[in-house]
């Protein structure tokens, strides 16, 4: 353990460890290069899924998210995570319970049954915001770790919804045309391309992917058309659930709608891993639904 490493409890969620383990692995390795040490949050579960689970009973959502937060409180460490859905559950419940005594007391009533108490003693961060924050890391520091610049590639950014919205409760500024993840992408030597309706949802959230898959995919398809128009070599995001919707979603779109895009979809941590010299095997890119080869050929 390096002495001046900042330590965070790493909340994994479900999709990263159980579908795209390369995201988990990349997060741990890439963050270590900028002075962040991610420690396992033992016994954490589902955040739980804000749409699929929160839709049924918000009070259980508060309680189960609080259980995850308490695990980090017991480590006396801030949480970092790499999924927008997890961010909504963990960041937002932490925020709500810190500011709403009534809900907090209600949650603690229940947590008492499992010998836990929400204290409100830690903060929650998306790893991408830690990367962007000049006090923690910053774009320049990210750029300084790049050994294999992604020069010559055009990369589009999907911000997703639950990291920055609702904008008023969050702290990311403008939600209509943000550019900070583009800055992180350009730090890797790639060209960040703009496309129509960048801030539109991937279509998967709110339980819609499970409830009506063609509806969800039709939203995804609209975005894929816009992405194809600007000739993006890859799409990057900071949410494994959005990644699933774009990546596995392209396979499903081909099946159901007969349309094919072949647009590689990489989590920003995977992209950063590549730029820092990690091999496609170290990122388990073969688990992706869309073949990443056309993109990899441009940089390897």
């Amino acid at each position: 353990m390096a002495g001046n490493m900042r330590q965070y409890a790493f909340f994994l969620g479900c999709i990263a460890p159980n579908r795209y383990p390369g995201c988990e692995s990349a997060a741990i390795k890439t963050s270590a290069k900028v002075g962040l040490e991610l420690l396992p949050l033992k016994g954490a579960g589902c955040c739980p899924a804000p749409g699929a689970f929160g839709s049924i009973d918000l009070h259980v959502w508060y309680a189960l998210a609080a259980r995850n937060i308490v695990l980090a409180e017991q480590m006396n460490m801030d949480i970092t995570l790499i999924c927008n859905g997890c961010y909504k559950s963990i960041w937002e419940v932490n925020h709500i319970l810190k500011h709403n005594d009534e809900l907090r007391d209600g949650v603690n009533e229940v947590l008492k049954e499992v010998d836990m108490e929400f204290k409100g003693s830690i903060d929650v961060w998306h790893l991408a915001e830690l990367y962007y924050d000049p006090k923690i890391c910053g774009v320049e520091k990210i750029a300084s770790t790049v050994t294999r610049p992604l020069t010559g590639t055009k990369i589009a950014v999907h911000y997703g919804c639950h990291l920055m919205k609702p904008g008023k409760e969050r702290h990311f500024g403008d939600t209509e045309n943000p550019m900070w993840i583009e800055e992180l992408v350009e730090a890797l030597g790639a060209e960040a391309v703009q496309y129509r309706n960048k801030m539109q949802c991937c279509g998967a959230g709110g339980g819609v992917r499970g409830y009506d898959i063609t509806h969800a995919l039709d939203i995804t398809n609209e975005k894929l058309i816009n992405l194809q128009e600007v000739g993006a070599d890859a799409l990057t995001e900071v949410c494994p659930f959005c990644q699933l919707q774009y990546d596995r979603g392209q396979v499903e779109i081909e099946e159901k709608f007969g349309q094919k895009y072949g647009l590689p979809v990489l989590h920003y941590n995977e992209l950063l891993g590549l730029a820092q010299g990690m091999s496609p095997d170290e990122l388990a890119l073969d688990l992706h639904g869309v073949d990443c080869k056309p993109f990899l050929e441009k940089i390897l």
């Binding site: 919804c161 919205k165 609702p166 209509e176 539109q200 279509g203 959230g205 709110g206 819609v208």
Partner: peptide, 12 residues
């Protein structure tokens, strides 16, 4: 009722 993707654009 179940077609909201909870994207929060309306909320913003």
């Amino acid at each position: 009722l179940w077609l909201c993707t909870t994207c929060y654009s309306c909320t913003d």
